[in-house]
Design a protein around this nucleic acid. Structure first.
Lengths: 188, 188
DNA sequence: GTCTATAAAGCGATAGAC
DNA sequence: GTCTATCGCTTTATAGAC
């Protein structure tokens, strides 16, 4: 692991894993160094401003992923039901493979929440608005679509909490499946 | 504040506030000392094992509150719809007055989650099972009640995340109101 | 029960060699 | 790009006076 000559996005991926497992505030530099196998020098080479730089980079990478795999498809897919199905598939697989942690949700707790408050808000409004758009494409009124989208995102986020509390991926997948069913029923 | 001769439950209440605002892991002893007005000596007098002792005491106090105000009424109230209405009223008011933070949900993240994993699991299973019992009293089948209860708790927990992300109590209250409506519709 | 002083450890961050 | 050594500060926890 030592002489691997990483690039920055390798480092960001490794950091995201540590932050998901240990939280943003715990994960000391020594822990980060140990768990990522990236030395102190490299860390400060990639992230000159230290931990807040790391957090920003990790959140940005999550944001890019969701834009590409979730938000844009929700807005662009013509058939609302297809858009809903695709979202549930992508999101379920994503969180199962990412330790059942939404790093943006994690950022609503803890000391430094103010630092990232604006991008956290943007992440959730983007998600809710994109889903609402898809539901409107499927025939729902603006208000009904907004409410259903907000409830769906909330239920998925709560599903992550319960999946962690129960230490069980299937809890999340079942909840996502029922969210999908409810949304499809509303469109029918 | 200095010579007030507090008792332990005053200290627990003050600690809960700090943990909700700053998170379990941040909130250093200096911060705790400053924000609670309780000196280092008193803190270690009440909580000899330090921070983990404090966390345990705070979680226990939350558990007692929910048992008394939420779980027991859910199990005991004969009319399922009344039980659901009471739960939504209590829970909405509770979280609005507690910085929109569920400390048990917060414990599913971060370094020390393993320490409290068992009591976190118990909190959520108690809630879900008590709500499921109420829904069964209202006429739902076991399976339907279990699923509806799990989804309801998840949606409320996600509602807390969104309310923090949007910095808006009404987001939570709206979500809780729609959860209530959905449960009552299912009982009708 | 509360205070202050302090010990011992760990922290984030920097410097400079390679 | 990576490493190690180190600075200066903060942390948790303890000790002992009141």
């Amino acid at each position: 692991m030592a002489k691997t000559l990483l690039d920055r996005s390798d480092a960001v991926r490794a950091l995201a894993g540590v932050f998901r497992r240990r939280g943003f505030e715990s994960g000391s530099l020594s822990v980060i160094q140990h768990e990522t196998g990236i030395g102190r020098g490299s860390l400060y080479h990639f992230f000159p401003d230290g931990k807040s730089d790391m957090a920003r980079a990790v959140l940005d990478q999550v944001s890019v992923w969701f834009d590409e795999h979730v938000f844009e498809p929700l807005r662009a897919t013509e058939k609302g039901a297809d858009a809903v199905r695709a979202m549930c598939r992508e999101v379920g697989a994503y969180f199962v493979s990412r330790e059942r942690v939404c790093l943006y949700a994690a950022m609503t707790l803890g000391e430094e929440r103010a630092t990232f408050a604006e991008s956290v808000r943007a992440y959730f409004t983007d998600w809710v608005e994109a889903l609402s758009t898809a539901l409107q494409h499927g025939g729902l009124s603006d208000d009904a679509a907004d409410a259903a989208a907000l409830d769906a995102v909330a239920t998925i986020q709560g599903g992550l909490i319960l999946a962690r509390a129960y230490d069980d991926d299937q809890t999340l997948l079942d909840i996502v499946a029922r969210v999908e069913k409810r949304l499809l029923d509303a469109l029918a």
